[in-house]
């Protein structure tokens, strides 16, 4: 069955909601919106990382990149020391540009430098993390202008949620309805056949990395807007959460396969698990449980991926 993964994720989300309702009848209605809002950064970045993984590469630097971009935005726009207090729209434009350029740079490293993407982005993860610490110089940054905070806390219309829905819908269209989307899948499934069909493997990969950079910038902006606080640990560990969601969502780590719907469901499921665990008042136990559950989910996802896919010749070289 084509939509097996999506179906099982829906069942899991349903089962979890049901269990939560047993504990507390008001849990789901009270938390549904919160869960969605909390999942926003992961959701947006997962869209990019999903495309990267479909082309047969991976990007594990997104957590540090989000941290660095959040720090940059904070420094540029914060109205208190050490912020520069420049106009928030200008700051946003700068952050979007920087994010896209860093993504493009990562792509160049992988495509032209022929560094395996897992290694290149691991290096980047560490380097960007260092850059974030250096920029922040220790303390947290707070006090942001209203225009910026509005993006994350707008009361009547949740702008961040609408933006996320647009990103998800855009990614879905890109994947399944555009020429570029077809090329992304083709490159991931069989690079040499894709090349002989006149597809530029290089451009396709550069595009997905650059797009991931840009989406990470959007996520960083919404993050700062919502929390109004940036610290040196902002974004730490996010890359693992993102990769978990993408893999659990049914995207094959070997490239060439995966759908946006599965990824969206996986993001919701995993955010929900975290919320439920927090809610259960386990204190520090919550983190342990969360890790164990997510770990098992990755293993199950990857193994079932292995069993459902026949061994295809061609493909990776």
């Amino acid at each position: 069955m084509k939509y097996r993964r999506e179906a099982s994720l829906i069942v899991l989300v349903g089962a979890l909601s049901f269990l939560a309702t047993l504990f507390d009848a008001s849990f789901v209605p009270a938390n549904a919106i919160d869960i969605l809002i909390n999942s926003i950064p992961t959701m947006i970045i997962s869209c990019g990382v999903m495309l990267v993984i479909i082309t047969g590469e991976i990007d594990i630097s997104v957590g540090s990149l989000l941290g660095l971009l959040a720090a940059t935005l904070a420094l540029l726009s914060s109205t208190a020391e050490p912020g520069l207090g420049i106009h928030p729209y200008l700051a946003i434009a700068i952050v979007l540009t920087v994010g896209t350029l860093i993504g493009l740079g990562t792509g160049c490293l992988v495509v032209y430098g022929r560094v395996p993407s897992i290694i290149a982005t691991l290096g980047l993860l560490i380097a960007l993390d260092g850059a974030q610490d250096w920029l922040m110089g220790g303390g947290d940054i707070k006090h942001f202008p209203q225009e910026l905070r509005y993006l994350g806390t707008g009361t009547t219309i949740p702008i961040n949620l609408i933006l996320t829905i647009l990103v998800v819908a855009g990614t879905g269209l890109l994947c399944h309805k555009t020429a570029l989307g077809r090329r992304i899948y083709a490159v991931g499934s069989n690079p040499s056949a894709a090349r002989l069909a006149g597809i530029s493997v290089t451009t396709t990969k550069l595009f997905v990395f650059a797009l991931t950079g840009m989406l990470t910038a959007i996520a960083a902006i919404l993050w700062v807007a919502k929390l109004g606080n940036v610290s040196t640990s902002t974004g730490a560990g996010l890359e693992l959460k993102v990769v978990t969601c993408v893999v659990v969502g049914g995207v094959s780590i070997r490239g060439g396969r995966g759908r946006i719907l599965g990824v969206v469901l996986a993001v919701i499921l995993i955010t929900m698990i975290r919320t439920v665990l927090n809610f259960m008042d386990l204190g520090s136990e919550a983190v342990k449980w969360q890790r164990a559950i997510e770990g098992v989910m990755i293993l199950v996802a990857v193994t079932s991926d292995h069993f459902t896919q026949r061994n295809q010749p061609g493909g990776k070289s």
Binding site: A186, S189, N190, A193, L196, P313, G314, G315
Partner: peptide, 8 residues
């Protein structure tokens, strides 16, 4: 290996 994208 060169002509088709088999999973497509």
């Amino acid at each position: 290996h060169q002509g088709l994208i088999l999973p497509m």
